[in-house]
Design a protein around this nucleic acid. Sequence first.
DNA 1: CTTTTTCCCTGGACGC
DNA 2: TGCGTCCAGGGAAAAA
Length: 312
Amino acid sequence: MPELPEVETVRRQLEPAIVGRCIEAAEVLDERWTQPMPPSEVERALAGRTIRGVGRRGKYLILSLDDGSALVMHLRMTGNLLLCLSERDGQAPLGSMELGADDGPQLERAVSEPRHVRARMRLDDGSELLFADVRRFGQGLVLRGRELEGYLAARLGLEPLSEALTAQEIARLAAGRRAPLKSFLLDQIGIAGIGNIYADEALHRAKLHPLSPAGSLKPGDCERLRAGIVAALEAGLRMGGASVDDYRDARGGRGTMQDEFLVHTREGKPCLRCGTEITRVVVAGRSTYFCPSCQRRLRRPRRKARRRIGAR
DNA sequence: CTTTTTCCCTGGACGC
DNA sequence: TGCGTCCAGGGAAAAA
């Protein structure tokens, strides 16, 4: 599932390759992709535009265009943004290679034509930017500058790898909230970009229980959570993201973060810190993995018993 | 207001 | 081999 590290990995790959390129033509193959916008409107808005920048906000990838508008994309569960180089630039034609016994894993992309392509953009250097998505949850919208700001601001909170994320800010966001820490981290309006994988990994690093109420965090807990979030996301970035199921980077390659998971998907396996078996529970409808020994549950802060003033 | 649940969607895993 | 059922989960919307 693409989260901040996966989207940022794609962004870093695309930036040097497509900035300055003109989108000669855009084709939306699945009308769901642009909902609630009509596909034709998005196609028209993209055709002829030059890409000025490749940005990211939370899990959104943003192509800034030369007329002040932007293509805002979200990969959701199974989306992939693939940059396919033109064939005459040396890449073997798709489908022309056979699998050999000792072929590396990255050969996979040369063998198979991307499936479930929902949108395609032809660039002026002959390359193609494809949005492929099995489950069709992914989205692509074109917004004007002002609309873009509002759109993002209404959905996203702090950027966790910026100066904005401090222990004090976490404390402010969590104050008074009874929702489990796991839900707190998944809520994009608080801290943006964290999904199911990195929430588990961050909480383990911070030695916090996923079911502890967010409002139970003390200053020291907030600082450990901040550090845990940063460490988990940076580990993901170093590994080029986690390819648990469908995630591939812009070149069709896999990330390796899944080999470094401390707790996620490791139910029944020993905690790498203390050896205790990793436990799985469902929180907010999501599989949640943690070490019951390292990650102690905090008690819900009892609301101050306010004595009624003036009571006889 | 906050929190939880439901829904969207498809392919792969599993049981018979 | 084939068919039915269940599951995964980001985020929006509905329900509690």
